[in-house]
Design a binder for these strands. Sequence first.
DNA 1: TATGAATGAGGCTTCATTCAT
DNA 2: GATGAATGAAGCCTCATTCAT
Lengths: 215, 215, 215, 215
Amino acid sequence: MSDKRRRRLPRNVREQEIIDAALHVFSKRGYHAAVVDEIAELAGISKPMVYLYLGSKEGLFVACIRRESQRLAATFKDAAQAGGSTPEQRLWAGLTAFFAFVAEHRDAWLVLHRQAPDQSEAISAELAQARRSIMAVVAGLVGQGITEGGRPGLGEQDADFVAHALVGAADSLTEWMERHPGQSPERMTIGLMNMMWVGMRNVLTGEVWTPPRET
Amino acid sequence: MSDKRRRRLPRNVREQEIIDAALHVFSKRGYHAAVVDEIAELAGISKPMVYLYLGSKEGLFVACIRRESQRLAATFKDAAQAGGSTPEQRLWAGLTAFFAFVAEHRDAWLVLHRQAPDQSEAISAELAQARRSIMAVVAGLVGQGITEGGRPGLGEQDADFVAHALVGAADSLTEWMERHPGQSPERMTIGLMNMMWVGMRNVLTGEVWTPPRET
Amino acid sequence: MSDKRRRRLPRNVREQEIIDAALHVFSKRGYHAAVVDEIAELAGISKPMVYLYLGSKEGLFVACIRRESQRLAATFKDAAQAGGSTPEQRLWAGLTAFFAFVAEHRDAWLVLHRQAPDQSEAISAELAQARRSIMAVVAGLVGQGITEGGRPGLGEQDADFVAHALVGAADSLTEWMERHPGQSPERMTIGLMNMMWVGMRNVLTGEVWTPPRET
Amino acid sequence: MSDKRRRRLPRNVREQEIIDAALHVFSKRGYHAAVVDEIAELAGISKPMVYLYLGSKEGLFVACIRRESQRLAATFKDAAQAGGSTPEQRLWAGLTAFFAFVAEHRDAWLVLHRQAPDQSEAISAELAQARRSIMAVVAGLVGQGITEGGRPGLGEQDADFVAHALVGAADSLTEWMERHPGQSPERMTIGLMNMMWVGMRNVLTGEVWTPPRET
DNA sequence: TATGAATGAGGCTTCATTCAT
DNA sequence: GATGAATGAAGCCTCATTCAT
């Protein structure tokens, strides 16, 4: 319908276009409610082509997850590495990139993070893997900071705990961001860091919060 | 599960049982993948009863959301109120209750928080309403703390920001909790408070984090 | 819901009330689309009572047909008999009664005349019987007129032919009547008689119409 | 029925075949009692094709009505136009064609004329429209005759009245025809014209029938 | 390479009918 | 005499997937 005249595209390009379409539809409807017809139409080709290229609806979904989780992890990692030399700088840069990514690629984030748990075995596995890999990148960065801080007692488990809190907060804040347009990723990051970095730092120095006594 | 020869229950009771079953199935499969047959079977009755009492699959879902979101909000609120007189005590008690609830009623939490966005109009509306009401309860508590702290400049928007971060972190941490059994809600809360309360407090006193300069 | 306080009615009365309700619903929705629940509710009793009294949905329908077809035939017959001594007078009176009946008891007429043909064996039979009996009454009257007119050659077949034309025209005119309110049964009859009585009379006297030659 | 190994027909053809089948089943069972499975089977294809091409059961029915009402109106109109130059000739030709059509396409006639009134909004509208358009064609012809006859006082309303009577009589006579096989459309028309044309003519010349005085 | 035509399987919903009280 | 609770059976519709060209 659109003016996509059907040029003969090389397989690779065509495949990416299909995944683009699939990502859009999956994010809009969720895995089950998504309909392959719509994906094919959006990609500007016929359904059999979709099956020829990606094999099945499940295949489509897995391809989306795989591509986007890699993209997100890479974005985060690259930004962190380029961000500076101290853990603080790196975390700042990484989180900013994270917010920017989520804001810009809402589709990808929804597909990665808001799918009903069940679905097929293959999908569950792929999703778990994707989430784990993202969490690992974040936890890695956090871990550096903690370790470097000098409290070697803190281990992987703590880093993972912190990473979960960070990612969860960031995720939830994207919803807040949606209702407060005009917030830049930088400002979001500042807000988040305000809340969490200090806590993280204090954890390092042993300044630990304890439950208040009831009067 | 046990005495499946139940018969002729009064409408009210049956209805709650059906919602119990629906909650379980919806949380396990997600809205679309859930199948009404399974819900009926789990509730120990035939499908027509489900439709007689709840009207439709959508009606089932809405009933679940409504009941559980009220339950969660009430749990949080009650615990907070009974938790003490200072904001810190209340937040502590509320969050602990939150973790306990989510740990115990995994089903409810999944249904409230992990559904694909689209679905029907009615469902979207109900979900949005539910989430807003939970967030409001948390934000209310946070707001008290912040206001009381003396920086009256901080307004609703900040409280909402913090609430999002808190709830998001808590949500994400429940996943962590699942992979680290044996963690009590209290320990989870301590961990989370370690990370966030200090930050919140610092925010109050004006000790604001700023992005590090790149070297 | 209405203020029908559930007095204990004698079986007969109750039965008639149920048939009233059934007639209403069947005429509004047609046999298949009609729902027993609605009939029960309209009758102000519970569904099992309906089954106790009339046995089945089919039984309900048959009862309606039987009662109303007898009522219509009787109305027509009585009016004709009381209408005068000549066939013309009688036909006039009968048709007027017919139009009055159809106008007043739209429900009955729809149920008798506008049902899809198939349905169950019992219903088909009952409907056929009902229609035949009505047609017979009309044909009887017509036959008298014709016979009396002196052309003994005209037999049952012709009377039946005329009766069909009459009843069909009358039926169709009830639709016209609906779109032109304010028409009395008398005026309808005059209009119809204008068109058909003359023709009938001419038939008697042998003045027969023949197809025009194409020029 | 015969060569059931048909495959891969172009959409247009298949669509007509499906409508053929639908017409048959709808006429046999009525709208509600008709079952889409049966239609599909009769059309020699699977149910999804039916839905792909016609959209819904309602869509099927509407398609039937639309096609057949146009066909009937066209048949009548064409025959009338080709029938001669005088209104009488035209009416004769039109009615003969009408009887022939109804005799030959019993299905179509039943679907057009014998459906329970309620049904869905779309169906009611379509049916009303169809019936009105047929009646309009007949009324047009009748109107010509009347007007030409010289009594200009007779207007649309009278033509419509006459048209209703004519169509109703004709409809009813098709039932008679069914029970008296071997009657040609011409003979049916002669019989009907015998009864009604004279009346119509008399109406023109002002010879009006009046109710007999009761003695 | 590309697609119009086709379907098996399965899910939501409704209804006539019957128990058990 | 009366009814609230319950269900087997069936119908509409959709969708992932595959042929045949």
